[in-house]
Design a protein around this nucleic acid. Structure first.
Length: 486
RNA sequence: AGCGGGGUAGAGCAGUCCGGUAGCUCGGGUGGCUCAUAACCACCAGGUCGUGGGUUCAAAUCCCACCCCCGCAACCA
């Protein structure tokens, strides 16, 4: 029986163009989706963009654009990047989609009716100059850095989501891995946070923000962006906000043998996120689900950040590595490879353009690229049909990918590549060709089969390269997969 | 203050959970080869595993203290 596999990336906030971090998460999700498709699973891979909120409203104003026009452009930019990275998603949900908005309003009404959302006050540090609330972290010595003014504590009417009443249950679910958070260290971190303090009820509406989904029960307020954004994980499957629809279908399908409907992909098998959004994904998101009586995602996998020169990438420091720059220099598959093999997925990974270039030359140009060149050249005097090959999907690589150890999976492939280089060296097929035809055939058989195997395993990571290797085996035409840089 | 992570050869990391000759890639040196993208292969150099103590026959790995670095510190989406 086919297994279903539903993977999501975060819905990216479109206040600015996509960067390398977005690419990192997305490529990983694409690798998982492709891998499971190859296993024969029924896969749904959801991506999207989060498009409301004050920040976007302001950015749009600054650039003299209508907010809708602004988000249309940025969102399109995200899609373009996914095309360039050869990311094949099944749906791309935008939170400005009318269907999504209607579903969000439906959910808000449900929660308001059952009392999970109530009218209260939001208290925060307010900067008069900015006309908005600030976080303590934004302030420098308690003052607004933009206006150099003291911020005052201001109360504003707001709607709040009850958090605390479900906190204990949430802790238990996380502990029992019913809501599984990986790697383990993030589970620990979030548990110590949840056990350490009482969750305050979260304000889920804004009065001073125009660019958002109006509350159905109070048109003066718009919905807080995160609340809106989270629900896209469900509306991305076509959910309309109707709770019953989530549970009814399943039993119907079982009884009548109906095909899997999109919505039945829920709960997500994996939600991939970066560590920056761990906390919201382990507080507001699960609480909303609990309040609605909807199942948790099975696994929330949190990866680390890409650092540059040991530091956070920042425009001020000037150590930002652009994703466009990478794509231009290393190509689509080169970029995919470098992102996935850069370091332990889950940990922070330090990269610099110099090291990436070194790795590109070592692993791609000199490694896989060169091996393909030499084997194809030798194979021009060897008769074979690639249709005779059967690929044995390696068990340890299988496990590596299931455990999100992408870098280990790649390491394993590169071990095979090195072994083959060594094998060529030891057997000198160019000599055998002249004086030992039988041995030559044997040696080439092994080389060609291994190359076929490599191309197969490489498929989820480097789909284009995988195809190119197979094509080269077919046509025996020499190809340069990855030209050396410099 | 608190919480989380890290400190292992010139560089980047793995190994730490379940103690037992310190490993990988890059870079450096020497030699080999010519099928290949000046690629590839072999060998060599290079580490008191942050510091100090403890447990143990044995500690990078377990325990304690300290130093240094990074991140988080909730509505920044």
């Amino acid at each position: 029986m086919k297994k279903k596999f539903f993977v999501t990336t975060p819905v990216y906030y479109v206040n600015a163009k996509p960067h390398i971090g977005h690419a990192y998460t997305s490529v990983a999700a694409d690798v998982l989706a492709r891998f499971h498709k190859l296993q024969g699973d029924e896969v749904f891979f959801l991506m999207g963009t989060d498009e409301h909120g004050l920040k976007i409203q302001k950015k749009a104003e600054e650039s003299g654009k209508d907010p809708q026009q602004f988000v249309d452009e940025i969102s399109a930019g995200f899609k373009q990047l996914w095309d360039k990275l050869d990311i094949k998603y099944d749906n791309f949900i935008r939170t400005t989609d009318p269907k999504h908005k209607r579903a969000v309003q439906k959910v808000l009404q449900i929660l308001f009716d059952k009392g999970a959302i109530y009218k209260g006050e939001y208290e925060g540090l307010y900067c008069v100059g900015c006309e908005q609330f600030k976080n303590e972290g934004d302030l420098v010595n308690g003052r607004c850095p933009d206006h150099d003014t003291d911020c005052e504590i201001v109360k504003e009417e707001s709607y709040l989501l009850k958090m605390n009443e479900l906190q204990e249950e949430l802790v238990q679910k996380i502990e029992k891995d019913e809501f599984c958070i990986r790697p383990e260290k993030y589970k620990k971190e979030i548990l110590s946070f949840l056990k350490g303090e009482k969750l305050k009820d979260v304000s889920i509406s804004r009065k001073n923000v125009k660019w958002g989904i109006p509350l159905p029960f109070d048109a003066e307020h718009t919905t807080y962006v995160w609340f809106d954004a989270f629900l896209s994980y469900l509306t991305g499957l076509g959910w309309n906000g109707d709770i019953l629809r989530l549970s009814l279908r399943k039993s119907l399908r079982k009884n009548k043998g109906l095909a899997l409907e999109k919505l039945e992909f829920w709960p997500a098998d994996v939600q991939l996120i970066g560590k920056d959004i761990l906390r919201v994904h382990t507080t507001i998101w699960p609480i909303v689900l609990m309040q609605l009586g909807i199942e948790f995602p099975k696994l929330l996998f949190t990866h680390g950040h890409l650092l540059s020169g040991g530091r956070k990438m920042s425009k001020t420091i000037g150590n930002v590595i652009g994703i466009d720059e990478m794509l231009e220099k290393f190509g689509t598959d080169g970029t995919r490879y470098l992102l996935m093999s850069a370091g332990t997925f889950g940990e922070d990974v330090d990269v610099t353009m110099e090291r990436l270039t070194e790795k590109y030359n070592a692993d791609l140009a000199n490694g896989i690229g060169n091996l393909v060149s030499r084997v194809i050249r030798l194979a021009q005097n060897f008769q074979f049909s690639i249709f005779n090959f059967q690929s044995i999907y390696n068990d340890s690589i299988f496990k590596n990918i299931e455990k999100f150890e992408f870098e280990k999976a790649m390491g394993y492939i590169w071990k095979i590549i090195r072994e083959n280089d060594k094998f060529v060296e030891e057997n000198k097929p160019w000599e055998l060709q002249k004086n030992d035809e039988k041995k030559f055939q044997e040696v080439m058989q092994k080389l060609v089969s291994d190359l076929y195997l490599i191309s197969d395993i490489l498929m989820p990571f480097m789909p284009e390269t995988s195809k190119k290797i197979k094509k080269a085996l077919e046509t025996k035409e020499a190809t340069v997969l990855f030209p050396r840089i410099k």
